[in-house]
């Protein structure tokens, strides 16, 4: 459900990029998806296939997902650690004063256009 909404945003941005670059066919869209972005890649793929095939510009276009590992920073001991393994509590010093450095991305990295 959530993923379908995200797909509509991707399609809107890709259409605009195609227009700006005078492109009439897109063969692939590469996404950077953070590990803790709440996006489920399989669902995103399913929603993409359904919605992209309804657009002439995107018919058959492949959605490629780069997963960005989530990293959290500890303000107390200045270390960085994997968010998925350890969560909000720093595994080195036990501090709760931590924040997410990366891993929340939902961004379009690039689009691929058939070379003619």
């Amino acid at each position: 459900m959530h993923e379908l909404g995200i797909v509509f945003y991707i399609i809107k941005d890709v259409k605009q990029a195609a227009l700006d670059n005078a492109v009439s066919k897109v063969s692939g869209v590469v996404m950077n998806i953070g590990e803790v972005s709440t996006i489920v890649p399989d669902y995103l793929q399913d929603c993409w296939r359904w919605a992209a095939d309804k657009e002439d510009l995107l018919k058959g276009a492949e959605l490629k997902i780069n997963t960005i590992p989530a990293v959290t920073y500890c303000e107390d001991c200045h270390s960085e650690y994997g968010t998925v393994e350890h969560g909000k509590i720093c595994p080195y010093c036990g501090s709760e004063h931590t924040y997410l450095l990366r891993g929340n991305e939902v961004e379009i990295k690039e689009i691929e256009v058939p070379n003619q």
Binding site: A17, E107, K109, V113
Partner: peptide, 23 residues
């Protein structure tokens, strides 16, 4: 404005944009 890189089969247009940015 636009960064293009060429491979054999496809032309790549770099976007680097969060989908939440417009919103």
């Amino acid at each position: 404005k636009t960064k293009l890189s060429m491979t054999d089969e496809v032309k790549v247009i770099e976007i680097k944009k969060s989908i939440f940015e417009d919103n």
